[in-house]
Design a protein around this nucleic acid. Structure first.
Lengths: 234, 234
DNA sequence: TTCAATTACATTGTCGACAATATAGACCTA
DNA sequence: TAGGTCTATATTGTCGACAATGTAATTGAA
């Protein structure tokens, strides 16, 4: 029950993953139109394959499609980001609660090992942590919930959208060490099988994280405010 | 911002809605295989249309598909039902919280009107309520959250799955009047703009509902236990 | 008989062409 | 010029055919 991320078998699979990465990483701009013919030649597959890939992006909420008009990458807006974090707070809070109940001792041990590694890298270069480490930590708790609905919603839905915002806003700021302390408290609660506390701490953690991002959005020093991004629409 | 349920435009749309209804209502059995050719002749459309419809069912978690093998309707299991209710508790709790913050006075008034109608019909025939009334109430609160992510996840994801369980388990039991009282308390909290309380009450309400269903599952008097359903697989 | 390999069949995945719809431009009218 | 209609074009939706993969049956050998 390791919940492996399902390798790409069919051509539509590969195209879907490629397209998703290109969009999340910003190589295909937010709010831009996705022309089936254009993508078809670009990726060297038939239109049917592109259509299927786009359909799957639609179900991830990364792309929106209107009948007979076409598909567009979603727009990145402050409201959208807040909505995402509200859903995260709700779902990941429940994930932490369930993780406290359902995680195996082995999984809990692995979680602690992960945090020890983070403790080391936080001392040296703080930048490493924020990017991969944070995602790793949350990912393990989500898996630890042992609730497949929850796992699917978060890992192949919400999380790619969150990452899209993160990447395209150039998030790598501070809040590293303080977030790390929060992670430790959450892991502690899970190890103690304290479901109530685990949920509460996780919700706070995500709320703080949201407030941090909101703060960056409103401060004019941010290199990319969301209003600037939408210029490259067409 | 009424969030209309998007009418069927294209043939794939109609086929998707038709298929979804047929599955939820049980006319197509749970765990049964979906043959593209077969459905193609049955609904009188090309295989491409069927494929797209199936893809959308997959994104609703109503159907599972394996590459080069085919698609099957999801199996109905006790574990799956519990997972669903855990997600519901999480998401609808948040919806109630946000509804307390964001619902317009007009929406709150409509919610109260709805409850008054329910109060009347509960007196007369209790059966009416459970089916449509419960869904209506929850639906309005979800919409009242004004969070489009949340709305989409619940109304075109979770809810159809929940309904599939309800229909195929023949749910129409008691818990009507007591659930109605809970609804009143929730509406009260929302009217008072008490977000904390609204969330807590909604979570309790869904927990009770889950326990009620679990109870029915384990009692042998239920006309359909989930173990019986899976016989008609093939 | 039992197991393995091979063959034949059925089902899904992919493709290119055609039909239906939307968009942009030309043309006409007031 | 402003507005509207019509035409031309581009884009999406749908279809049937072919390729690739999985599945079951058949055959053969031990």
């Amino acid at each position: 029950m390791t919940h492996a991320p399902a390798p790409a078998i069919t051509a539509a699979d590969k195209t879907f993953y490629t397209l998703r990465t290109d969009i999340v990483e910003g190589r295909i701009a937010a709010s831009s139109k996705l022309s089936e013919a254009e993508l078809s030649t670009k990726y060297g597959v038939s239109r049917a394959v592109i259509r299927e890939a786009i359909s799957r992006l639609v179900s991830c909420h990364i792309v929106e499609r209107k009948a007979n008009i076409g598909a567009r990458v979603v727009a990145l807006t402050p409201e959208g980001l807040i909505e995402l974090y509200q859903v995260r707070e709700s779902l990941e809070g429940m994930a932490a609660r369930l993780a406290a109940q359902n995680m195996t001792p082995a999984q809990i041990a692995e979680l602690n090992t992960l945090l020890e590694q983070h403790a080391a890298s936080v001392k040296d270069s703080q930048l490493y942590y924020q990017e991969a480490g944070d995602v790793d930590f949350h990912y393990r708790i989500i898996i630890g919930s042992h609730n497949s609905q929850l796992i699917t919603l978060l890992t192949e839905g919400i999380y790619h959208l969150v990452r899209m915002y993160r990447v395209q806003l150039g998030m790598a700021g501070p809040r590293v060490t303080t977030a790390f302390a929060e992670h430790q408290h959450i892991a502690q609660a899970i190890a103690n099988r304290d479901a109530e506390l685990a949920e509460m701490l996780m919700r706070r953690h995500i709320t703080y994280s949201r407030q941090n991002i909101e703060h960056k959005l409103h401060s004019p020093s941010t290199k990319l405010s969301l209003h600037n991004i939408n210029k490259e629409s067409l």
